[in-house]
Simulated assay, not measured.
Amino acid sequence: MDGLTAVHSRISEIQSRFLAPVRPTSTTAAWASAASAAGLTGAGATASPATGTASPASEQAVVSEARKYLGVPYLWGGTDPAKGLDCSGFVQLVYGNLGVDLPRTSAQQATAGTAVASLDSARPGDLVFFDHSSRPGIDHVGIYIGEGKMIAAPQAGETVKVQDVGSPTVIRRVLPAQAAAGTAPGGSLAGVPYADLFTAAGARHAVDPALLAAVASQESGFNASAVSSAGAQGLMQFMPATARGLGVNALDPASAIDGAARYLSQLSGQFGSTELALAAYNAGPGTVRRHDGIPPYPETQNYVRAVMSKAESYR
């Protein structure tokens, strides 16, 4: 396991502990305890991966990096995820981990990059700024993830979470132009069946294309005509009722991949982690809610591990 994978694994472990059925009475204490147990404390929690090489900054990289901190408690002035983050500390951390330096405060960050005319023109990874105080001036920032949603550290007593973006005062794009435009069709998935569809759907719905490819591999072995004994259909193995609910043609690869990306984006926002989203994709959202985590079913647990491993191999 390389340094980046180890850090990702640790953060996922922390999130799963934070979402466990037995919770300490203090959110901050719960997070700090889990982070300490995982060895993510102090400056080490905000350091770049052990390799010292920043990850490429792209729309998907920003959204994936931001999702790692879902559940971290809000802390005014916070820049250490083991203790807590405020809105601009969260944004600075996410972009810093990807090799993009941003100023410390939201007001300063609102001058970085280039202006985006409106929310209709916003792309995943853009910064959305707000003026919530009685005095004029920017005082809040979040990271736009598409579909009218952002990830932000809202206020005291809350945690980093996915929420409606509302009406931003200012929108700024700090990614390089080529990164904001998305990767070329196929990207790192060159040679994977339907790579262009995974890449396009991932960009539309702020989902890692490698994760979509991994789900397709695990579900159907990239067989767009597959039908399971339980009646699940197509490349992404949608049950007919789920496909109807999403408005998806399960046997059409483009429709199925787009529907799976949209569904996984919804599940990630609902449950706060990729692993729980995958568990819900496999066993159903109700089952994940009922067990308050990944269900204790070998099939589902093996499914989550297999998809995460395949996704890593596609990156």
Rank of each mutant, 00 (worst) to 15 (best):
F18C: 04
A20C: 08
A20K: 08
A20S: 15
P21H: 13
P21M: 12
P21N: 13
V22Y: 03
V22R: 14
V22K: 12
R23H: 12
R23A: 11
P24T: 15
T25G: 07
T25K: 11
S26E: 14
T27I: 09
T27V: 11
T27K: 11
T28C: 00
T28D: 08
A30E: 13
A32W: 01
A34R: 06
A35R: 03
A35S: 15
S36Y: 06
A37L: 13
A37V: 07
A37F: 01
A37C: 02
A38P: 11
G39C: 11
L40E: 14
L40I: 07
T41F: 00
G44H: 05
T46D: 04
S48Y: 00
A50Y: 01
T51I: 03
G52N: 08
G52E: 11
G52H: 06
T53Y: 09
S55Q: 15
S55E: 14
P56Q: 12
A57L: 05
A57P: 15
A57M: 03
E59D: 03
Q60G: 07
Q60N: 12
V62Q: 04
E65N: 04
E65G: 05
A66N: 05
A66G: 04
A66F: 02
R67W: 09
R67A: 10
R67L: 11
Y69M: 08
V72W: 10
V72T: 15
P73I: 12
P73N: 09
L75W: 03
W76H: 08
A82W: 03
G84E: 09
G84S: 10
L85A: 10
C87R: 02
S88G: 08
G89M: 05
F90P: 04
V91S: 07
Q92C: 03
V94C: 02
G96D: 10
L98R: 13
G99S: 14
V100E: 06
V100F: 07
D101T: 15
L102R: 06
R104E: 06
R104A: 09
T105V: 04
Q109C: 04
Q109G: 01
Q109N: 07
A112T: 13
A112H: 06
